[in-house]
Structure formats: structure tokens, C-alpha cells
Design a binder for these strands. Structure first.
Lengths: 216, 216
DNA sequence: CGGACGTTTCGGTGCCGGCCGAAGTGTCCC
DNA sequence: GGGACACTTCGGCCGGCACCGAAACGTCCG
């Protein structure tokens, strides 16, 4: 109860929440980058970062005159996600299956360590059709085999989780499997970052790769 | 991000958090009861309740001159739980299997709709030994049969969840199964509320019933 | 009807916390 | 070494919000 207010107060501030939102791309940002992103003075940002780090929400590693910070782990991303999706007007399935694949995937992004946005939703739909996951977004047995063929190694972390993205209101694929697929796609050059922040696009190689995997 | 700060700000206040903590017993409280519990004036409590209700965290039903409020559902309890357990110093398994059963169960309470405190931990340990759940607190196949014999009907709600209690730092059994078992125990007179708030004790009938089920 | 009680509305007060700018520290690079 | 740069510390300012008491409203009950 006491503990609850501590966490909540940290996230109740507009600026600190903006920091966390930016860090949801899973990368490390410098203090100045975050200050510019949230439109506050560097001194203000510095104080906020100290508090977030002391609370265990962020971790830092210093390199020369830079102070890099990032989320302390997937559990933080999951907490942020849980709180955010709670506030929203609830999941609206949005039943449109529309549009050609490449069109639908046009705008994607990362959500901490997995794919989100339209790209993430397309991935989820593809995995659903392939039978890798079922309608409740739970892994199936053939799905686990399928993942292992892509180099996936089960660990303590939950294999699949449903994540409701901040902008799209559609649940997509998170958890260890979501993170692994995202990593594999980066390694194969199937997706790449574009612009400055979390945006991600499917490359031509990626379109072909997805087709070969049977993902729409 | 905007949405995040809205929820967080609501829970960042000491008084509102105290309300939610009290309501975690799953029952409906009146405005005055909550005001007294949090040591604020009734007028102050009234304003807080209005805000919590508008945000969808609580629901009210009015009866005469009383305004009863309760948590809006399990999803709220789960959010509170997620935020609270985050703030703590992390789960410390606390390997002591000590003490006679009735002694260890002496102090129990409800956590929204399931058992918590030492009683909840004892229940979890018993179910673990029975093989109803495994070490990761996931339901097993024989466990599901066992539950169905106690009248459990699977629904959309997740069958078992791990819940870290506010006071004990040990994970215990929540989710649909935890709620069902708690309800059955109440119906059978195995547990009963004591004192004014969330405290629960195992009755003599309950001790016998638990033994017959094989729960320590 | 009238009094007790639970709740609500409204001003007014006080404090907490986020913000900035200025000055200081440490690092990099020419 | 010296200047540019990233970050930090410290005062001081200011707005927002939690709080209360007083008064009003509605319900219950004798």
C-alpha cells in the first residue's frame, strides 16, 4: 500500500512517463536525448532519471561523459503495458482483415523487445493461421517445434504473452517467443529500424522471408 | 502514455491507495467506512471515490442513504497486485517448511477473491504437494480433474495465477481456481471471517476438511 | 413532521513536487 | 592545456492537489 503509492507516484508524472514510453523501444537512451524528447531542461531530466533508477525501473551504464539508461527488464515493460492497457477504453478487436500484406505491415515498431504496431499484429495473425498459437494466444505443441527450428530455446520466461500496444488497441505477440522472433528478424535483415525512434519496416528480404515461413 | 499517468496519478495518492487496499478484501464498503479507515474527512473520501469510480477502478451501488463501493473486478485487483509486488524487494522464497499446520495457518486473509496470508501460502503448498499445480504454479492435468471434483468450471478467466501478497512476500494461488476454492471453503464453513476486515481463520471443520483433501 | 445520519458541494488553505537557470564536476578531443 | 560537451547540484519559483469545515441535500425512522 505504501509500496503501491511509491511506484504509482513515479509514473504519475508526465515527464517520467514520457521517459518510460520512449525507453519502451528497448534501447538505451542518453539523458540529453530523453530531455529533448520530453521537452524539459537537462537538469530536470537528470533528477527524474536518478529517481527512476533508484526505484529499480531503469538501469544505467555510464560511458565516458554519457549516461545511458534503459528499462530494467521485461518485467518493467510488462508493468507499463499492464497499466496502460488498463486505462484504455478496453480492447476493441477491430475486425478488419483488410489490405494486402505489405500494405498492412507498412507501419511497425518495437515494443521493448518484440514487434508491435501493424507489423506486430500481422505477425500475430500469421502465427495464428499457421497454428503456432491458438486463439487465446497460447503456444501450441507444433508451434513450439516451429519456434525451435528458428533457434528458439525455452527459458524461465513465459513463452508467449499478449501485449496490447499503446497506439493500436489490438493484442499482439510478446513474451520470450515474441522477443526471439524480433531478434531473428533483425539478424536476418528482414526488418530494420527507420527514423530516430521505435519505427521498424519490413525489408524486401523480409517480405520474401515471411512468405517462405508462410506468414501471409 | 497519457493514459499511463492518469492511472498512476490515481494510485499515487496515499488515501486513494488505502481505499483500494481495503477494498482488496473483495467486499463492498461504504464511503464513511473508507473515510474512517483512511483517517480523512467524509467529504474528502467522497471526492476520492468519485474519481476512482469515473476512472473505472471502482464500481458503486447506492442503497438508500448509503453508497457502497467495491473494486470493479478481478482485473483491478490484478493491477494493484502487479504494481505492489513490483515495488517490493522481489520474491524471497523463504524456504522454511516449518511449524504445525494449524499454527502456520493461524493468520490468513482474503486477497480480493482468493485466500492470502499464511493460510493462502499453506493452501498453495498443499496443492503443490498434491500435484494439483507444479513448481511454476501452473495447473496440471490431474489437478484440473481434482478441481472439477470440487465443482470447478473452467471459464475464460485464467485458471491459476501467482499472486504476491502485500504482507507476506510469498507467491500464493490466485486466478479462477483460487477464487473457486475460497468460495467453496466459505460455503462449507471451513473458513470464516473474523474481526472487521480481511482476516480469515480456518474453523475446526476446515482443519478436518483440509486433512481429508490431503492438504497437510 | 422533525431529528439523526450518510453523503455531497463549495471555498479556502497549505504543502508537495516539478520546473528552470546558474554554477560546478568530470570527460573528451584538438 | 583549454574549450566544448554531457551531466549534476542547488536555490527559488510556481501550480496543482489533497485536505478540511460549513452548509446543503436526501433518506430513514420514530
Amino acid at each position: 500500500m505504501e509500496a503501491l503509492t511509491r511506484v504509482a507516484a513515479l509514473l504519475a508524472d508526465r515527464t517520467r512517463a514520457a521517459f518510460c514510453g520512449a525507453l519502451l523501444d528497448g534501447r538505451a537512451w542518453t539523458a540529453n536525448e530523453l530531455a529533448a524528447h520530453a521537452r524539459v531542461a537537462p537538469s530536470t531530466a537528470s533528477e527524474h532519471l536518478t529517481r527512476l533508477i533508484e526505484a529499480g525501473l531503469l538501469v544505467e551504464y555510464r560511458q565516458g561523459r554519457h549516461r545511458y539508461v534503459s528499462l530494467a527488464g521485461p518485467h518493467v515493460a510488462e508493468l507499463l503495458e499492464a497499466m496502460t492497457s488498463f486505462a484504455g477504453p478496453g480492447p476493441q478487436p477491430r475486425g478488419l482483415r483488410a489490405a494486402s500484406a505489405s500494405e498492412a505491415m507498412a507501419r511497425g515498431r518495437t515494443c521493448y523487445d518484440h514487434l508491435a504496431g501493424k507489423l506486430g499484429v500481422a505477425l500475430k495473425s500469421g502465427l495464428l493461421e499457421l497454428g503456432v498459437v491458438n486463439g487465446d494466444l497460447a503456444i501450441t505443441e507444433p508451434g513450439l517445434v516451429w519456434l525451435k527450428e528458428l533457434g528458439f530455446e525455452p527459458s524461465k520466461r513465459q513463452v508467449v504473452r499478449a501485449c496490447v500496444d499503446w497506439t493500436e488497441r489490438v493484442p499482439h505477440l510478446a513474451g520470450a517467443a515474441g522477443a526471439h522472433l524480433c531478434q531473428v528478424f533483425f539478424e536476418r535483415g528482414w526488418i530494420k529500424r527507420i527514423g530516430t525512434i521505435r519505427a521498424v519496416v519490413l525489408t524486401p528480404a523480409g517480405e520474401q522471408g515471411w512468405r517462405e515461413l508462410g506468414l501471409t
